[in-house]
């Protein structure tokens, strides 16, 4: 019963991984200075993506989102993110926060290696796409105190 399904999943995997190849980026200090896509993100779309539960941001963070009843408090409030961090610093913190603090509970949103037992639906895929990360970065820099 599970044989053909498993075989199908295995066959599908290499294609999936190839389709999801990540773009390269350069880390300078504690920042990624250049946009992952080569283009600036869209802050309005970034806000929408950030509030989407599938993006997972507000499961842990809270922020200036009065319309959202259920936000987390495991992680810092996002108010003033744009005053505390530069665009490049925010980008690295989204892409791979574990580079700055190995013990952080912040997932690496643009990393597929070094992970353990990722479920088939998510295997080989980053949590967010390069475009989504650029949109969120563009939104976060507008959060100034």
């Amino acid at each position: 019963m599970s044989g053909p399904i498993l075989a199908g999943a295995l066959l599908a995997l290499p294609g999936l991984a190839a389709a999801q190849e990540l773009r390269g980026y350069a880390v300078t200090g504690d920042a990624i200075a250049k946009s992952l896509t080569g283009a600036p993100g869209d802050p309005a779309r970034g806000r929408t993506t950030l509030l989407n539960r599938q993006s997972t941001c507000i499961l842990c963070h809270n922020g200036p989102f009065p319309e959202e009843k259920f936000q987390g408090d495991l992680a810092p409030n996002l108010v003033g993110s744009g005053s505390r961090w530069s665009e490049g610093q925010l980008r690295l913190r989204l892409v791979d926060a574990s580079r700055l603090n190995e013990a952080t509970i912040m997932p690496s949103y643009y990393r597929v290696d070094g992970l353990h037992r990722v479920g088939p639906a998510w295997r080989g895929k980053p949590i967010l796409s390069a475009e989504q990360i650029e949109d969120i970065v563009a939104y976060l820099v507008t959060l100034r105190e």
Partner: peptide, 13 residues
């Protein structure tokens, strides 16, 4: 053990 795409262990929460 940290695991999954979100890379969290039970202990983290």
């Amino acid at each position: 053990q940290r695991q999954g795409q979100l890379n969290l262990g039970c202990t983290n929460c």
